[in-house]
């Protein structure tokens, strides 16, 4: 089993990396780009077990360590 986690900067937080990449895309003539935001993707391999319990555990890991709730939001799925 794997947990796939996406951590993104909150909407209210400035993302200068995303802005720079947006400009770069425009400079190579990609059109129609409204916004670019850059986050992180984490993949955690799990030994397996009860899915509900794993959900709870990963959620706690995201909240406590893998993201900083002050500046980031996260979503995840367990497959």
């Amino acid at each position: 089993m794997k947990a796939k986690i996406i951590v993104m900067p909150k909407k209210t937080v400035l993302d200068p990396q995303g802005k720079t990449v947006k400009h770069a895309l425009e400079s190579i003539h990609f059109k129609g780009i409204k916004d670019v935001r850059i986050g992180k993707f984490l993949e955690i391999e799990l030994e397996g077990g009860n899915k509900a319990a794993l959900q709870k555990q990963i959620d706690e890991a995201c909240h406590k360590l893998l993201s900083n709730p002050v500046i980031e939001d996260y979503t995840f799925e367990i497959q």
Binding site: P9, V13, L14, P16, Q17, N68, V70, I71
Partner: peptide, 11 residues
């Protein structure tokens, strides 16, 4: 302490 430190605006 409250808040967080993020990437400098200039990167």
């Amino acid at each position: 302490l409250p808040g967080a430190l993020i990437r400098n605006r200039s990167l």
